[in-house]
Nucleic acid binder design. Structure first.
Lengths: 150, 150
DNA sequence: TAATCTATTGCAACTGGGTTTCAACTTACG
DNA sequence: CGTAAGTTGAAACCCAGTTGCAATAGATTA
């Protein structure tokens, strides 16, 4: 399932600047990588891509920028069931939360939006009086293809 | 009056043995720690508790045993929104999955069972033809107490 | 436009959770 | 009891992520 391309390029930059943050060359580079990514990238992949645009960039700057984006709620951090070590993956925060399904056999990641998920979060907020800032639903299992070819 | 004991002691042990796994002294110790835990423990806490019962136990044995229990679906691994570094937490797999709510202010972890959650998983299995083996729903936000005292 | 102030960067060293390797040791089983 | 295969501990290792600090570069002001 490909990631939907629903955002105007430059939106993350605009968001950060509107919050009064200093816009450096390195940040612009990292933001553009995250913004135009077609799949979920981990920090080292983001570093590699950013270095193609600005070879001097350091991995610590990538980590710091990802932390910044996370704190501002502009990106989400995913674990994807820790199928490939302990690395984390990142994606622009979507308008509507979705579920990540990780196939334990082929490693494919699929996404799924569901009204039930939205209702569940509403129930949590109401019944537990818990104000949700970030949510993450990940499931591990076997996708249709892998179940068939078994 | 004794505390309510939700599980029969030794259930994890019995499960593992019934699957033909070798029952060593170290495993029995680690299993009893996990089984009687009153909160979510990370690997180093499990090690510390296990060493009170068997001082010679090594952390590598704890990691291996936790991996074993995970592979057999007897415990679940939690991230709890990575609020305290990158450590993982463990709990016996419950009969019915629950949601973990992590308060970003006071750090408290609350649990919540929901019919909507069960239905959502059913929807994923049906509509995505995805066979769920493990699921993890974690939300970060602010609990009722922290919202009040702000 | 230049001066200034302060956030940000890069580097190197470090941290910490988790894994690998391998010889020595146990456990289960006949 | 003897054996074979699974398990353990110790040390070294791996790797994602963080910290301390001097140098640098945005933003702001004059």
């Amino acid at each position: 399932m490909p990631l939907p391309q629903t955002e105007v390029p430059g939106r993350l930059q605009a968001e950060l600047m509107s919050r009064g943050l200093r816009m450096t060359h390195q940040r612009r580079t990292i933001l553009s990588v995250v913004e135009t990514a077609k799949q979920h990238l981990d920090a080292s992949q983001i570093l590699r891509q950013a270095r193609r645009l600005d070879p001097g960039i350091d991995r610590v700057t990538v980590y710091r920028t990802l932390g910044l984006l996370k704190r501002h709620g502009l990106i989400d951090e995913l674990d994807l069931m820790h199928m490939q070590g302990e690395k984390h993956f990142y994606e622009r925060r979507p308008q509507r939360d979705h579920i990540h399904m990780a196939c334990l056999r082929c490693g494919k990641i699929a996404e799924f939006e569901s009204d039930l998920f939205d209702r569940l979060k509403g129930q949590i907020q109401r019944e537990c009086r818990f104000h949700i800032v970030v949510s993450r639903l990940e499931v591990g299992g076997y996708c249709a293809e892998c179940r068939a070819s078994n």
